[in-house]
Amino acid sequence: MKKQVFDLSPGSRVTGKWSGCTYTIIKKVGAGACGTVFLCRSHQGDTYALKLGEDSSRMMLEVNMLKKFSKVQGVKLGPSFVDVDDWVDVSGRTHPFYVMEYVEGTPVTEFLKGKTKDWIGILAIQLLADLENLHKAGFVFGDLKTDNLLVSGSKVRWIDVGGVTAIGRAIKEYTEFYDRGYWNMGSRKAEPTYDLFAVTMIMMEMGHPKRFEKGSHPQKALENKLASSPILKPYRRVIQQCWKGNIQNATQMKDHLSGVLMKRKSPPASSRQRRVHNKKSENVELAALTVASGVFFAVSIVSFFF
C-alpha cells in the first residue's frame, strides 16, 4: 500500500540478480499503481520499458499475464514480455523488476485534441476489437481507463495489464470512475460486460474531460451527463443500450458503433434509397465506404511519397 516512487537518474544501471542482465536507465516515463516505469537500454542496445516495484507478488502476477499474452499467437494482447529479475541496490535492498516492450505513443486525451468527434467512435472500435480477442482468450481487462491507453500510429494500445483477470473471477484492480460497481450498474465479477461498461465511461470522459462524481443518484447522474454532451450525441443510443445490458459482447458493441459512424458519414441520401433502407443496403453501403476509404488511404500514401 505504501507507494514507493523510485528516482533513478539517467545512466543508472539496473542489474538482474539471477540472470546478470544489465539495463541502463534512459529516463522515467511514468508511475503506476505498483511501480515506476523507466525507458531503458539493454546490453544489446535495444530500448525497452522497465518496471521497478516493491510488491514482488503483484509484479510477478503481472509478469505471468504478460507471458501468457506472448503465447497467444497472431494477436497482440499487450506489450511483449522481455525479462524478469531482482535488483539489489547499493544499500543492499532488493527490488523486483521486469522488462517489456516500450510502447511509444500519445495519451488519448491529447490525441483527441482538435480531432473530430468521429475519432471517439474510431478509438472505441479499435479498443473493442482488442477486447474481443482478449475476451476470446478468457480474460477481462479489468482496470480499463484512459491512463492505461496510448495512441500509437493512430491505433489505440493498452500499456498496463496489471488489472487483467480471468473471466469468472473477482475484479481486484479498478478505478472508480470506470467501475460499474461504483455506479451501481452491476457486479465486480470479471465478465466481458465489465469491460464494455468501462469503454462507455472512456467515451463519457471524452465528452466530459473533467470527469464527475456519482452523487446520490448514480444512474441519473450518468444519464444527465450523457444527455448534456453534444459530442456524445451520435453515440448516445449505443451507450444507453450498453448500460441497459442489451449489448453483451465486444463484437456487438463494435458493430453498433460502426453503424453509427457509417450512417453519419453517408451523404444526404436520395429519398428513394432511404425508403429501401434495410439491413442489406446498409451492408452494401458499409462495403462501399470501406472500399472508398481504402482507395482514399492508398491515394494519400502514394501522394505522400511523390
Binding site: 514482488s56 507478488s57 510477478m60 509478469v63 507471458k67 532488493t94 473477482a170
Partner: peptide, 22 residues
Amino acid sequence: TIEELPPEQRGEVVEVVDELGE
C-alpha cells in the same frame, strides 16, 4: 520466503496465493 525464490518458481507460487485469495 516467496520473495527470495527465483523468478520462475515465484511466478508459480504467486498464482497459488492468488487462487487461494479468490
